[in-house]
Computed example of a mutant assay.
Amino acid sequence: MNAVTIFVHGFNGGVHSTRNMISSAQHAGLAKQVMTATITRYGRITISESKNMRVKNPIVQVLFENNRAPEFVQINWLHSLLILLKREFNVMEYNGVGHSLGSNDLVNEALMYGDDLRVPKLKKLLTIAGPFDGLQGFLGAQPVPKILKMDYRPVHQTKHFKRMLTYRDHFPKGVQLFNVVGKIEGHFDNDCFVSVNSARSVKYLLHGVLKNYRELLVTGEEGYHCSLNHNPLVFNSVNDFLWTEHPNLPNMQTRSTDAQALESNENKTLATTAV
């Protein structure tokens, strides 16, 4: 069986949060949803729409019945699901796609339980608008070209972020990460909910343990927090990164003219890659 890809929604999210991304992959013929895993507010896992797992690039959509549960609770729920997928469905490898808090859940589960042999091996992570350092830096204001040159290390680290740093060596080796960050129109560096600085801080959090790191910065109206997971550009990046043998992801190093244009017009979209 090839790697199963699990899609995890964010705070107050639900089936609609990841449905369009899953549909995009299915319409492109790249993957197929084989299961919906609903986790009740008491932590019980209910499997529905279960189909043959031995299809090309199977997808599992994860739904939290209590979609406002604290992050540490969701991390434990996700860990239990991964154990179940390996034990009951023989899933040996997985990819993770998360939006907002779902991104944090996936990253933090791998940090805290990366040494647990009961869970499948993590191969690829795609994180969208993850508040990895909380809401720190929400009111920062920098032009896009300067943002892209800034250090990924957050200036003010939350207690949770500092604690996660202590688990860095437990993170599975060889993981590829693609990080989608949003920045709306206006003077402040955020997507209306999560700061650019917080969303980009995952690179610093996992520095030295990732196989590689790629990043996409979406600006203007399409950079809104709740639009990123419904954005065709993001769909294409998800599909390319996860299921294309030689992904054709944009590289900022060959698109410097875009950065100059964005300084005066932030309605455009910018993609950047870093290793």
Rank of each mutant, 00 (worst) to 15 (best):
M1Q: 13
N2A: 08
V4S: 13
V8D: 00
H9G: 02
H9L: 02
N12G: 09
G13D: 06
G13E: 06
H16L: 07
T18S: 07
R19A: 09
M21A: 09
S23N: 10
G29K: 08
Y42T: 13
R44L: 14
T46L: 15
I47A: 05
I47H: 07
S48W: 03
S50R: 08
K51N: 13
M53H: 05
V55S: 03
I59E: 07
V60H: 08
N66R: 08
A69R: 00
V73C: 03
I75N: 05
I75H: 02
I75P: 02
N76K: 14
L81Y: 11
L84T: 13
L85I: 02
L85E: 04
N90C: 13
E93K: 13
N95E: 09
G96H: 03
G96D: 03
S100E: 01
S100L: 01
D105H: 00
V107P: 00
L111Y: 00
M112T: 02
D115T: 09
D115V: 06
V119Y: 00
K124T: 13
K124W: 10
T127P: 01
P131R: 03
G137R: 00
F138M: 05
F138W: 04
K146V: 15
D151I: 11
V155E: 14
K159M: 13
H160Q: 14
Y167D: 07
P172F: 12
P172H: 05
Q176D: 12
N179C: 06
V181N: 01
G186M: 05
D189I: 07
V194I: 05
S198F: 02
A199S: 15
Y204L: 02
V209Y: 04
L216G: 04
L216V: 07
L217Q: 00
G220R: 05
G220C: 05
E221I: 11
E221N: 11
G223Y: 10
C226L: 10
L228T: 03
F235W: 06
F235K: 01
D240E: 15
P247W: 09
M252F: 09
T254D: 14
R255F: 11
E263R: 01
T269S: 11
L270M: 12
T273Q: 08
